[in-house]
Design a protein around this nucleic acid. Structure first.
Length: 160
DNA sequence: GCCAACGTTGGC
DNA sequence: GCCAACGTTGGC
């Protein structure tokens, strides 16, 4: 019996924000389009159904944790890698040996108001967040149980 | 819009 | 296998 883990996943709200997740069927979405090996490895190898997800708005105003989600599927091939019409098409991947894997996530809650990045940056205990390290671009990465708890405190809600 | 930091590509 | 060049990310 392995412990539950926690993750942060970035999305640009102009492309797909937490409101889009809230409006999705079953408030569930496929986390398509990740084309970075480290992020893929986390999704493929380390995530488990039931893990918690901080839904982060990048390239946005305001930059913020907009809410939380939960991992609801095993790792499955990202179908967009096989779609020549998709911007995420990868001609070097094959059905028999897919390169890019993804998960499905379901909305748990919106943070209202969202927890701003500048709040994270000034909160004791969050100094080590990967998100806040200089030069970090990784769009899927782990957060600690402490970080998960502190961010829920900032949001004024019980951790789920 | 700028640009620093990073990841990937490809010539050698 | 190195590393320069390039493209992208993403905060500011």
């Amino acid at each position: 019996m392995s412990e539950r883990s926690y993750w942060l996943m970035k999305s640009e709200p102009d492309v797909f924000g937490i409101q889009d997740l809230a409006n999705s069927p079953d408030q569930t979405t496929a986390w398509e389009g990740v084309r970075n090996y480290q992020a893929r490895n986390y999704m493929r190898d380390s995530m488990k159904p039931g893990d918690g997800v901080l839904f982060y708005h990048s390239n946005a105003n305001p930059l913020c944790v907009a809410g939380t989600a939960v991992v609801v599927s095993d790792a499955v091939p990202d179908p967009t890698q096989f779609d020549p019409e998709s911007e995420y098409f990868d001609a070097t991947s094959s059905m028999s040996n897919p390169r890019w894997m993804m998960r499905h996530i379901r909305l748990v809650r919106l943070f209202e108001p969202p927890v701003l990045r500048e709040t994270l940056a000034s909160t004791p205990g969050l100094e080590s967040m990967i998100l806040l390290q200089r030069g970090t671009r990784l769009s899927v990465h782990p957060v600690t149980a402490d970080e998960w708890r502190i961010i829920h405190q900032l949001a004024g809600v019980q951790p789920t």
